[in-house]
Amino acid sequence: MNLFRLVADLMHLVSIFILLLKMQKTRSVAGRCSRISFKTQALYATVFLTRYTDLFANFQSLYNTTMKVFFIASSLYIVFLMKFKFKATNDPRLDTFKAQYVVGGAAALALIVNYAFTVQEVLWTFSIYLEAVAILPQLFMLTKTGEAEVITTHYLFALGTYRGLYLVNWIYRYWTEYYVDWIVWIAGAVQTGLYCDFFYIYFTKVLKGAKFELP
C-alpha cells in the first residue's frame, strides 16, 4: 500500500458517500438537472460482484476485505434505492446509453484477453474492462441534459480523481516493486481518459463558481 493508492481508495469512498448524500438529501435521483444514471450504478454493482468473487477465498488484509464488502454493499444499496425507493423520480428516457453493448464487449474481450482461462479470472478481467466504461451512461446523460448540479459534478470529480491516482500508484509500484499488470493498466488508462473532458469543464467552470454547463 502506498499513499497514492490509499488516497485513491478514499476518494472512491468519498464519491460513494457524495452520491448517497445527494440521493438522501434530494430524496430522489432526478433533481431538476442532476440526474444520476441508473445504468452506470447497475454496471458498478456488476463490476464489484464479478471482481470480488475471491472475497472469502483470498484474504489479503482487513482493509482489503472491509473495502470489498463496502463496495459490494453500497453499490447494491444504491441500485436498490434507484430501482425501488426512488423509482418514480428516475427518468429512463434520459438514461439511453446502450449499456448492453459495453457489457457484451467487456465479456467478449475478457474471454479473449485474460491472464488465465478460469471462471474466476475471466470474471475478474470482465470486471476490469467493464469498470473502464461503466461511467459512459452517466457521461452520456450529462451530455444529453447539457448541465449538471454541483453535487453531481463533485461525485464525478471524486471518481475521476480516484482513477487518476491509480495511474500514479501504478507508476510508483512499477519503480518500487516492479509491479506489472497490463490488463489493469490499459483499462485504467482508458477509464481515466474518459474523464478528460469532464475535468476540463469542472476546473474551468465549477471550481470558479459557475454552473456545470456544456458549451
Binding site: D54, N58, Q120, E121
Partner: peptide, 10 residues
C-alpha cells in the same frame, strides 16, 4: 505465483 494471488488492488 498464481494469477489470483496478485490481484491485491481494489
Amino acid at each position: 505465483e498464481s494469477a489470483e494471488a496478485k490481484h491485491d488492488e481494489l
